[in-house]
């Protein structure tokens, strides 16, 4: 097997380790303190926000409009509606303005 395949295998093992690692560490404890519990409940909003926020730094007016529209749609509709609306607004603005 060539080097590329070995790099991919090592990367896959490293990735699986991240996907199971947090659980392996936590499962060593019998009980979970309420504060740790609160911290774990914060994980979705805390992590997923960081996948959005930095893109705002490079966003121009078109991207800002798309993301604000998508955010407003998300208040009422499901994720599919908000995603398609946001994507359409962005594509239209980028191609026609």
């Amino acid at each position: 097997m060539n080097e590329t395949i070995w790099i991919i295998i090592a990367s896959a093992i490293a990735t699986y380790f991240t996907r199971v690692g947090g659980h392996l560490v936590l499962s060593r404890f019998e009980t979970i303190h309420p504060r740790i519990e609160a911290a774990l409940n914060a994980v979705p909003a805390a992590v997923l926000t960081t996948l959005v926020a930095p893109s705002l730094l490079s966003a121009g007016p078109r991207e800002m409009i798309a993301i604000v529209v998508a955010g407003l749609v998300a208040l009422r509709g499901g994720i599919m509606t908000m995603f398609i609306t946001g994507a359409l607004v962005l594509i239209l603005l980028r191609n026609f303005t």
């Binding site: 909003a45 997923l48 926020a53 798309a66 998508a70 955010g71 962005l90």
Partner: peptide, 28 residues
């Protein structure tokens, strides 16, 4: 820019959780 829009939708889905707005602001 598709992924940021998509992940914004996921973040919005958690908006009823305790401390959501402070969390989003601080992490963001």
């Amino acid at each position: 820019f598709l992924l940021p829009i998509y992940f914004l939708g996921i973040v919005m889905g958690f908006r009823k959780r305790p401390m959501w707005l402070p969390l989003v602001l601080v992490s963001g």
